[in-house]
Simulated assay, not measured.
Amino acid sequence: MSGYLLRRSIGALIVMWAVATLVFFMLRIVPGDPFAAMMADAGDMEAVEALRRKFGLDQPMYIQYLKWFSNALQGDFGTSIYGARVPVQQLLLEAIPRTLSIAGLSFIIALIIAVPAGLIAATKRNTGWDHGVTLFAFLGLSMPDFWLAILLIVFLAVNISWLPAIGYEPLSAGFWPWLSHLILPAIAVGTGFAAIIARMIRSAMLEVLKTDYMRVARAKGLKQSTLMIYHALPNALIPVVTVIGIAFALLMSGAVVVENVFSIKGLGRLLIQGILNRDYPVVQGAILVVSAIFVFSNLLVDMLYGVIDPRIRYDS
């Protein structure tokens, strides 16, 4: 398995390099630059050229790329063109914990909802419980993240004042202030994720329940809970884990929109502001981090296959 993981890790690094390179050149192919837009009203072209020289945008594109890539290998993503020349690393270090907090809590909420719902729907097929889970999945997949976020703000933050409507508190400020600012965005992001996982668990469990070894286990007189948890669920996890790995990466894209609704300065909001301002260093750094999360979440899923099913041996 070590050989397989080494190959997959090298492939992951190549994918990240390709994404970073593509983003670098696509940003610069678009006509104009951030300084021309910044100084458009002033009409001071000498100041624009001075800023271009300062940030190296007057050099040939391949030289810009080589300098950026060599610095990125050392963890230096440059400084923000806007934002008082703050280093991009500092902006990312402030934004990453916020986005990962939302994604992590969304993941936990989704699993808490989806696993029992999927098991109940599979064991009580074509009953009211199954129809209820199907309805929840349909609604969860149909509601956009931002629309659900606005509803949560209106009902739980404005009308009832149970939870804060906007903002973020770091964990250093206390556990409850940190958690209370994450609950609403996590529910908004995690609801659709829970719907996907619940339907996937139901489908995978129904396939497993038809197998011969499950009939033998029932003939032995095992309890229904023992059959479902210790026999059926572990054998249904392979397709479920695949979907969970993909969906966890997609939580990052969901957080992009929800962060703007709740005014949380995470990766999504940082990326959108960077794109609107044509802040090259910020956009390149943020996309590199997001692509790393996507790539390595898939790598983690591949590693879990061998843990869940010992029959899977990559080296063979």
Rank of each mutant, 00 (worst) to 15 (best):
L5E: 02
A12M: 10
I14M: 13
A18F: 11
I29P: 01
V30L: 11
D33F: 15
P34G: 09
D41W: 08
L51P: 03
M61Q: 05
Y62L: 15
Y65H: 01
W68P: 06
W68D: 03
G75V: 06
F77E: 13
G78M: 13
G83Y: 04
E94V: 10
E94R: 13
T99C: 06
S101C: 09
I109Y: 01
I113R: 00
G118W: 02
G118P: 01
A122Y: 14
T123W: 06
R125E: 10
T127I: 07
G128N: 14
W129D: 02
D130T: 07
F136G: 03
F136I: 12
F138P: 05
G140M: 14
P144Y: 05
P144F: 02
D145W: 00
F146D: 12
L148G: 12
L148S: 13
V154N: 07
A157N: 01
G167H: 08
P170Q: 03
L179T: 04
S180K: 10
I187K: 07
V189F: 15
T191L: 14
T191H: 09
A198L: 08
A198T: 06
A204C: 08
A204W: 00
A217N: 07
K220S: 06
I229H: 13
I229N: 13
L237A: 06
I238E: 00
V241C: 01
I246P: 03
A249L: 11
A249D: 10
L250K: 03
M252T: 03
S253E: 08
S253T: 15
S253V: 12
V257H: 05
L267I: 15
L276S: 11
P281S: 10
V282T: 05
V283E: 02
V290C: 12
F294N: 02
S297A: 15
G306V: 15
V307F: 14
I308W: 10
P310D: 01
I312P: 04
